[in-house]
Design a protein around this nucleic acid. Structure first.
Length: 505
RNA sequence: GGUGCGGUAGCCAAGUGGCCUAAGGCGAUGGAUUGCAAAUCCAUUAUUUCGGGGGUUCGAAUCCCCCCCGCACCUCCA
């Protein structure tokens, strides 16, 4: 079964094969840690997770690396003068306000003016969110998730290489710039070739910011700046690294190769970020390619609109899990499913209805798993990927991660009779290694968290319903059921009596 | 203006030349079940139709041309 992925570099779907058979080296652009991650961020991260899990089930070892951007970049970093406000400082300001208003728990962060503490605070929050949502990589933190600030020497090393190889120069302002004219391939990924960039620049590029650069598209590698909140010594003065260099460096350092198999990110990173990464890596490593496959997730919309703080449709992961969308807590598996269930190359529309639909799907999958587990005592048969259901499921995913096609195999199969539950369980478990919702790999500790501190006596109420029904006291039974439902439980009858389970969303 | 992706039922969405009188999910409707519900199961739910118009072909949602519409990037953004 051949795997085909859409490659942004060539604008077509191509057969995927890792350079080293059986080992996939993959890099994903990770979060900036100036704030909590939002669901759009996670759509992109979970897309990478889906690729990884799929490739693993297909028999590959996947070495997956994702950076944590904790360098305090400027809001207008692209400008030659590095103008704007430092993002880490902006975060500090917010944190101080949140601390006053009690939004930040006591002791979570001692000194918001220390950018490293700000970064640490939001890094911890990110890892926590990521683990809840089943991002496999988050369980490999920190080995596979390097901090940019821990790789400054390697960045300086690569900048030196680029200067040496005539791909970079020190501008009139003392900053180091990459010379895009030294790299004829610049523009290949995004289609934004140099002449087109010039045409499209309109009035946006300000002359004053350009005088130190040889070409308007030349981008910053190192900015000497004594006043910057995070700064390091370098041969080009004390300052901070440019926005793009960290990814080139960390990919090379942690994947231990000049050429990697897959690089992922959100579609907005195609230009300029990934274009610049390619220029840096290929320039420094003197190789034809940086990543052989570039894969990009399209943006997530919320109720049909682009998510933005000003529109009030901006949701962090914790907002959603805590019930800001649905009015009640949402199980992480539901959010995970919602964010992976649509194709990565189409705009996904995040809606309240979609979230509820996902809750139904996740509940169905989990009940199916429980039923098979109890029938088999948890003993799954030995099977391989040639099982017809798996073959069809994986076949769909092999076609550029056609998740909808794959789910179109899974759901009808679930409702068929399963004369051999041991085999069925094995199939489901294999599928779940990719989906990770039925149950989530790390669900037990999460469930405990959810059910902790419960005020209602769930068991007691269920028994009460059974007793009332036994004496045909219908008003009483209905009243108790209503209590449970209002507390966020689904109530249903079973041969063993009334059962209440927490609503998933 | 440049570059790229997309437009399939009430909604989400698969299908890229004949097995399509178009998968799957949600919803809806009818039925079984239930004290009533929920869950579950069964049935029905695009029948000159796949954004619009031309064309190629024995045959097109699928290929070609033109047009319309949406989204994204070209400036910080996953």
């Amino acid at each position: 079964m051949s795997i085909r992925f859409y490659n942004t570099l060539t604008n077509q779907t191509e057969e995927f094969q890792p350079l080293e058979p059986g080992v996939v080296r993959m890099y994903s652009c990770g979060p900036t840690v100036y704030d909590f991650a939002h669901i759009g961020n996670f759509r992109s991260f979970l897309f990478a997770d889906l690729i990884r899990r799929f490739l693993e089930v297909m028999g590959n070892q996947v070495i997956h690396v994702m950076n944590i951007t904790d360098v305090g970049h400027m809001t207008d970093d692209q400008l030659a003068d590095g103008g704007g406000e430092d993002k880490m400082q902006a975060a500090a300001k917010r944190l101080k306000e949140d601390k006053k208003s009690g939004k930040v728990p006591e002791g979570a962060i001692a000194n918001p003016d220390d950018p490293y503490q700000v970064a640490h605070y939001f890094t911890q929050a990110f890892i926590e969110d990521a683990r809840k949502l089943g991002l496999k990589l988050a369980f490999e933190y920190p080995q596979r998730m390097p901090h940019a600030t821990a790789c400054i020497p390697e960045m300086q090393q690569m900048i030196s290489e680029l200067i040496q190889k005539q791909h970079a120069y020190v501008g009139g302002d003392g900053a180091v710039y990459f010379s895009v004219e030294s790299f004829p391939e610049y523009g290949r990924l995004s289609g934004n070739t140099l002449d087109q960039l010039r045409e499209g620049s309109g009035g946006r590029v300000q002359e004053a910011d350009q005088i130190h650069k040889r070409h308007p598209a030349d981008f910053l590698l190192w900015k000497p700046d004594q006043s910057h909140i995070m700064k390091w010594d370098s041969p080009w003065g004390t300052g901070y690294p440019g926005w793009h260099i960290e990814c080139s460096v960390m990919a090379r350092k942690l994947l231990e190769r000049d050429v990697i198999d897959i690089h992922t990110g959100g579609e907005d990173l195609i230009f300029p970020h990934h274009e610049c990464e390619i220029a840096q890596s290929c320039g420094a490593n003197e190789k034809q390619h940086f990543a052989r496959f570039w894969m990009h997730a399209r943006f997530l919309m919320v109720e049909g609109e682009k998510m933005s703080k000003s529109k009030g449709n901006f949701f962090t992961v914790r907002d959603v899990l805590q019930g800001k969308v649905t009015g009640r807590p949402v199980h992480p598996a539901v959010l995970r499913f919602e964010l992976i269930k649509s194709h990565y190359r189409s705009n996904m529309n995040f809606t309240e209805k979609g979230l509820r639909d996902s809750a139904g799907a996740v509940r169905k999958l989990n009940e199916f798993e429980r039923q098979l587990s109890s029938q088999t005592g948890g003993q799954a048969a030995e099977i391989d990927n040639s099982h017809p259901v798996l073959a069809e499921f994986l076949g769909a995913l092999s076609d550029d991660l056609n998740i909808a096609g794959a789910l179109g195999v899974l759901f009808p199969w679930m409702s068929q009779p399963h004369p051999d539950p041991h085999t069925a369980l094995a199939v489901l478990r294999t599928i779940n290694r990719i989906l990770d919702v039925a149950p989530m790999e790390h669900a037990e500790e999460l469930d405990e968290e959810v059910s902790g501190g419960e005020a209602l006596d769930i068991q007691g109420l269920c028994r009460g319903i059974d007793e009332a029904r036994a004496t045909k006291d219908w008003p009483r039974a209905d009243e108790l059921r209503k209590q449970l439902q209002e507390a966020g439980y689904e109530v249903r009858n079973s041969p063993e009596g009334t059962v209440a389970t927490r609503q998933l969303a």
